[in-house]
Amino acid sequence: MTSDTPHSAHSPAAAKQAPTKVARLRLDRSGTSNASSAGIDHARNWASIKPMRADAASMKRNHLFADSQDDDITRRFDMLRTLLATALEENGILRLGVTAPTEGSGTSFIAANLALAMARRPSSRVILADMNLRKPGLARMFGANPPGPLTEFLAGKHPSSDQLRSYQGSLAVLMNSQVAQGSAEILQESSTTVALGNMRRKFGPTVEIYDLPPLLGHDDTLSFLPQLDGVLLVADGTMHTASQLRAAEEMLNGRSKLVAVVLNRGEIRRSLAEIMQDFGDRWFRGRRKR
């Protein structure tokens, strides 16, 4: 098992430590109603997205797994996809953010491979968005040339069709070519909400996955939480402590819902195991009250 292999919440080692889902959600999904999308041919619009010129060697080097193969890593992501699908469908979650307490936790690795796994369903329309404006990385991982700076799209200067690139039909990646100054402020702008809403209405994705910067240290992800229906939290077993996980949960509390915790890299230390068990205990208490 490589250092990049995720010990997801469903794996035998972590199944008792982390919840697959944590609460009944009451979501505001404004801009996604059938009425607002009436008369739009989503399938046709989706088919019109320009193809991505991905580099297979770059994807392999960055541990992206596009094809369903009989290996341990792909099986883990396929299992994570299926377990998450239940939570997403039951709770009407369309916009899923992927973040971690600190930098270097493998957030992009988890977000990209989860999106690839979800896109293996032919009926899916998955949008994977690089929303880490401080350190964009999805284009590099796919070995692709991004169309331009994401800030131009978020400011409403370019349509989403100019920024998206299609990969293998059922995945569209919203890439970024450069670091943005004032990233948190950009994410708070109403133009960002409008741009993402227009993209949603035009293409009718079945799920949107947002690769986000870490929760602790800067307010970028905190600024973007109103755009999300739920959050997938990546915990690095080699460096995160219980206090960091608690701090990340407190940042989410009252702002977005924790859908799942995924352990990436290393063995579970006792302190991390305890906090992940605490997540699970509180989720089950919440379920009993329903």
Rank of each mutant, 00 (worst) to 15 (best):
F109S: 12
E208Y: 01
T20C: 03
M52F: 03
P205D: 03
D78T: 11
I209R: 05
V261C: 07
D162T: 11
L232A: 04
A100D: 03
A87D: 09
I275T: 12
V173Q: 00
T102D: 12
G266H: 02
A247E: 15
A144K: 13
S68D: 15
L216F: 04
G148T: 06
M131L: 15
S177Y: 02
I110K: 03
Q69R: 15
P19K: 05
Y210G: 02
I93F: 14
S3T: 13
G230Y: 02
Q244H: 12
S271E: 13
N34P: 11
I73V: 15
K60I: 07
R61P: 00
K157G: 11
L232V: 05
A18N: 01
E89F: 11
V98N: 15
V98K: 14
Q188A: 05
T193K: 09
D278K: 15
P146S: 11
G204D: 03
S271M: 08
G204L: 02
T99Y: 05
H158W: 13
A66S: 09
N253T: 15
S271D: 14
R75L: 13
G169R: 05
M131F: 12
P19F: 05
A14T: 03
Q244L: 14
A139W: 08
Q244R: 14
N145K: 15
L64Q: 02
H240F: 05
K257T: 13
S68M: 10
T238V: 12
A119L: 07
A119C: 09
L150D: 06
T74C: 15
Y210I: 01
H240Y: 00
L225S: 09
D130L: 09
P226I: 02
S11D: 06
L225G: 05
F203E: 01
L96H: 09
T32L: 10
